[in-house]
């Protein structure tokens, strides 16, 4: 492939600038390899977070040619040949140094979400019985590697900085994961509307487009949650029906056996 030119953001929380570097590109190389080469040969102080180099740890999130992507999963030969490759840190989070951002806000957000609250165990040995069909839906959400690329691309956080009112697509996926779990007894719908700000999402599908795990964030997590919010807060017929027919959460089902044991 020859040489590639990288335009890498260098700076800290105060100021910064793009700096150009060149790297020898070999077959199968990814952007993270090129950044490591720059670190090894030209800029030993270049800060870059990475870990698995296999698209599973979610550490090397950055913006490559303006698109949020994992550096370790972006092959150089997939980028336009002969053009300078721009590598920037994620814009949604405070910059620490060069390509490394402080994603600590996400950990604080997660603490605010009511945790998974399973029903009483179905069996005396503390286990539950659930149908694979019911598990399938939430298993998709468990693929999340918390790379926060979806948070980065979400314009509500990225451009409008609604960090104090909106949890972002990553945590709407998390909410869907616990809320739709057949074993869960919790009810987070009021929080999803009021505290976690689902109404701010205007369904651009940018989060779905950048997810390296291919989670259908908008269609399978956010919109179903929006519909559950409609059920409880905007649909007068559903609200009326709920008065007549009390809401039946999975945890209120009769367990198969051994109800006195806890998981």
């Amino acid at each position: 492939m020859g040489q590639v030119t990288l335009k890498v953001w260098r700076g800290n929380s105060e100021s910064g600038q793009f700096q150009e570097y060149t790297a020898e590109a070999g077959e199968g190389m990814v952007v993270l390899d090129a950044v490591h080469q720059v670190q090894a040969t030209q800029a030993p102080d270049l800060a870059c977070r990475w870990n698995c180099k296999a698209g599973k740890c979610g550490s090397c999130s950055a913006e490559i040619n303006g698109k949020p992507r994992l550096m370790c999963m972006t092959r150089l030969d997939d980028l336009p040949p002969g053009e300078v490759i721009t590598v920037e840190p994620m814009r949604t989070f405070p910059l620490m140094k060069d390509l490394v951002t402080d994603v600590g806000w996400n950990y604080e957000v997660k603490k605010q979400i009511a945790p998974f609250a399973p029903r009483k165990a179905d069996h005396r040995d503390g286990t539950w019985k659930m149908h694979q069909d019911d598990a399938d839906r939430v298993q998709e959400f468990r693929k999340c590697i918390e790379c926060y690329l979806c948070q980065d691309v979400c314009h509500v956080l990225r451009d409008h900085h609604k960090h104090d009112q909106f949890v972002g697509p990553r945590f709407l996926v998390h909410l869907a994961q616990v809320e739709m779990n057949p074993l869960d007894t919790g009810d987070r719908i009021a929080d999803t509307k009021n505290k976690h700000g689902i109404g701010y999402c205007n369904i651009t599908k940018c989060c779905t487009n950048v997810c390296p795990e291919g989670i259908t964030i908008t269609d399978n997590a956010i919109i179903p949650l929006k519909e559950r919010v409609v059920d409880e807060h905007y649909d007068p017929v559903m609200m009326l029906l709920r008065l007549v027919l009390p809401k039946k959460k999975s945890g209120q089902r009769s367990a198969v056996s051994g109800q006195e044991t806890h998981g």
């Binding site: 913006e63 303006g66 698109k67 949020p68 814009r91 691309v153 314009h155 509500v156 990225r158 451009d159 409008h160 609604k162 009112q165 700000g197 109404g199 701010y200 999402c201 205007n202 651009t204 940018c206 487009n209 950048v210």
Partner: peptide
């Protein structure tokens, strides 16, 4: 996606 917007204010579908 990841292109600058014309407005600063935003309420989305929250109100």
């Amino acid at each position: 996606c990841s292109v600058g917007e014309p407005r600063k204010g935003y309420i989305g579908e929250s109100n």
